[in-house]
């Protein structure tokens, strides 16, 4: 159980890392939100599951954190995205010239 839980912690941390990497690599703010929200949400849920396996007695509080996170995190992202759209930030489009394949 301890081992499996620790493994899940690594997987969760990996997803969080991927989310942060997406935050860094994506070309515009909308895509950054996408990468950030999805990967980090799953990463956090996996982490919570891992902790629940390591310390089974903590599951009620972990479930509460997970549930709240699952509701608040996407709402937060949508609220930011809507604010950006209303403030007039246009989404990035792939430039046509790019399709030929730039180096």
């Amino acid at each position: 159980m301890n081992l499996l839980g620790s493994l899940l912690l690594v997987v969760g941390a990996l997803f969080c890392f991927l989310g942060a990497l997406g935050l860094w690599r994506m070309p515009d703010v909308y895509n950054r939100i996408q990468a950030g929200t999805k990967a980090v949400t799953l990463g956090t849920l996996t982490t919570l599951l891992g902790v629940a396996l390591i310390q089974p007695g903590w599951w009620p509080k972990l479930l509460a954190i997970g549930g709240l996170l699952l509701i608040t995190n996407p709402i937060g992202s949508s609220v930011i995205a809507r604010a950006l759209l209303r403030a007039g930030v246009d989404p990035w489009h792939r430039p046509e010239a790019d399709k030929r394949g730039t180096p």
Binding site: L9, G12, A13, C16, G19, A20, L23, G36, T37, V40, T41, G43, T44, T47, L48, G50, V51, L62, I65, L69, N73, G76, S77, I80
Partner: peptide, 13 residues
């Protein structure tokens, strides 16, 4: 926003 969620996961871990 993303940092706060990562920090939440880190605290749990």
């Amino acid at each position: 926003d993303t940092l706060t969620v990562i920090a939440t996961a880190l605290l749990a871990a």
